[in-house]
Design a binder for these strands. Structure first.
Length: 508
RNA sequence: UCCUGGGUAGCUCAGUCGGUAGAGCAGGUGACUGUUAAUCACCCUGUCGGGGGUUCGAAUCCCUCCCCGGGAGCCA
């Protein structure tokens, strides 16, 4: 299951184009090599052993294979032991039968515990017992590393996610966090595949930036100034002495920079980390998170919404097709209603409602909310949940918000009161996508900057895009971790990113 | 940051009216067994989040700080 592209593929090709060493030939012939029938996969030197995912899928009975991985559990029987090995390639373990006649059975195999790393060779056979179709009859067991059961934190029982969070360096060895990692990887690839199939260009927008995507929250400053002796001017830090000669920050969004390339290449997208220094302590906020931001030229809000809906459906379908075991695991242990919810996303069109209609509906529904409902104020979480989960019961797109509560770059509608904005809400999570048609009219944009008290000088380059060859364009931002939460059912966003960064917490 | 609920064995938790701490799992030993969250018996395990206070006596009551969950705000 080696799907390679980009740099990895290039390296592999470099490898192969050189004369094969004796060792490499040995690897390729010794290993049970699942060479792709399609011929587009290249055997790599490290395919010395089989991946368990592939063995369970192809079940090459009678063949001698080698696996490498970590012991999940050992059960002893009369004259032999059952070892369950997981190598991270899939949810399932491979059951190994280790007879007592094996060398070092007493001294080593009977000492194997959860977490030990091993290399095992043997013959793959049909399993006589229930619970698994195939098993490995070990001929050779080599222990790479022990895991003292007195101190190894992971046990062969379920742990709380809160506990696992404290051992970020070990938690990917669990079923659920390993599954999340594979789903995250699959979805990352699917994001690129969706856009590449549609002819979008992938743009690397800067992580260190000097522009502020207004309205996207507090920023982290990037500095090499001596913090114990900050140079000051008029009482404030003098960033002219800093590394970049001016204040620089970690990006909160790649959108503004993406617009530059959108207005040159047509359809583009960014996919990278973003940083927000907000003191947000919730199950769906991170200080460092990944965002997907397509930006499309010659595109209005209606088309923007069509792309966003197609995108979400594509990703849901992709994960259903490519990670069925992971989805099964999440359905059984994380969220019982997950599979039904994902199926429902594909079955129905997303619901659509304008902000003004939403306000009317909320006012007339007879329900009392903690926060008052009034045109001109932002929809509160409870309002969004009510509309999405109780009224429509499916993903909901809310459009045309009052311009007073939205950033300067959103296109003002003809009513001069609302902007061409849209938020996509999903049940259980809330906002997963926020997007808009951008203001492409120079005068209107300038007016909006001034109206909001921003200095047009700071946005000169952004205004240039409207001065010269402006075109209607639109885009949106998708919170990648929220997407993973949505397709996995994981309740807390800290579980869907390998190393979560939140206020007061940045382990590793 | 605000509201709210928590912090007790390696993990998940119970702990009555304030009287000096317990269960399941994990771990150890043994038995049994094509087992699969194996089973059975026995054994081991504690700074009761930190600090301070009230009291003859505090896991328990009070103050304070730290950390975690849920909800809210901000947003993706």
């Amino acid at each position: 299951m080696l799907q390679m592209h980009g740099k990895g593929l290039r390296n592999a090709l470099l490898h192969i184009s050189r004369p094969m060493t004796k060792q490499m030939r040995c690897c390729v012939t010794v290993a049970y090599c699942y060479a792709a029938p399609s011929g587009d996969r290249i055997p790599l030197p490290m395919s010395l052993s089989s991946r368990i995912a592939q063995l369970l899928k192809e079940q090459p009975l009678g063949r001698t294979v080698t696996i490498q991985g970590w012991i999940r559990t050992r059960r002893d029987s009369k004259g032999f032991s059952f070892l369950e090995v997981n190598d991270g390639s899939c949810v399932a373990n491979l059951q190994v039968i280790a007879e007592e006649s094996l060398p070092r059975y007493q001294e080593e195999i009977l000492r194997l515990t959860t977490g030990c790393s091993v290399r095992i060779s043997g013959r793959l056979a049909a399993s006589p017992a229930k619970g698994q179709a195939v098993e490995l009859q070990a001929a050779e067991v080599e222990v790479y590393g022990w895991a003292d059961p007195e101190t190894y934190p992971l046990q062969k029982k379920r742990h709380s996610f809160e506990f696992l969070r404290e051992i970020a360096h070990l938690r990917p060895r669990t079923n659920s966090l390993g599954a999340v990692a594979r789903v995250r990887s699959a979805l990352s690839f699917a994001v690129h595949r969706f856009f590449q199939e549609q002819g979008f260009q992938y743009i690397h927008t800067p992580i260190i930036t000097t522009s502020d995507c207004e309205g996207a929250g507090e920023m982290f400053t990037v500095t090499t100034l001596d913090l114990s002796n900050v140079p000051r001017k008029d009482g404030r830090p003098d960033f002219s002495e800093d590394f970049f000669g001016r204040q620089a920050n970690l990006t909160v969004s790649g959108q503004l920079e993406a617009e530059i390339y959108c207005l040159a290449l047509g359809n583009v997208y960014t996919f990278g980390p973003t940083f927000r220094a907000e003191n947000s302590n919730t199950s769906r906020h991170l200080a460092e998170f990944w965002m997907v931001e397509p930006e499309m030229a010659f595109c209005d809000l209606a088309q923007d919404m069509q792309v966003a809906e197609a995108f979400i459906k594509y990703l849901v379908r992709y994960v259903q097709e490519h990670c069925p075991e992971e989805i099964e695991l999440f359905s059984n242990f994380v969220d019982k209603r997950l599979k039904g919810r994902l199926a429902a996303v594909l079955e129905h069109d997303f619901a659509r409602i304008t902000y003004t209609e939403a306000i009317e509906q909320l006012k007339g529904c007879g329900k009392t909310f903690n926060f008052p409902v009034a045109w001109g104020t932002d929809l509160q979480s409870e309002h969004e949940r009510y509309l999405c989960e109780e009224v429509f019961k499916r993903p909901l797109i809310v459009t045309d918000y009052p311009k007073s509560i939205k950033p300067f770059y959103m296109r003002v509608n003809d009513d001069n009161a609302t902007v061409a904005a849209m938020d996509i809400l999903v049940p259980g999570l809330g906002e997963i996508i926020g997007g808009s048609q951008r203001e492409e009219r120079y005068d209107k944009l300038l007016g909006r900057l001034e109206e909001m008290g921003l200095n047009p000088e700071d946005y000169n380059w952004y205004l240039d895009l409207r001065r010269y060859g402006t075109v209607p364009h639109a885009g949106f931002g998708l919170g990648f971790e929220r997407l993973i939460q949505f397709v996995s059912g994981m309740a807390n966003i800290r579980e869907v990113i390998p190393f979560p960064r939140t206020p007061g917490s940045a382990a590793l």
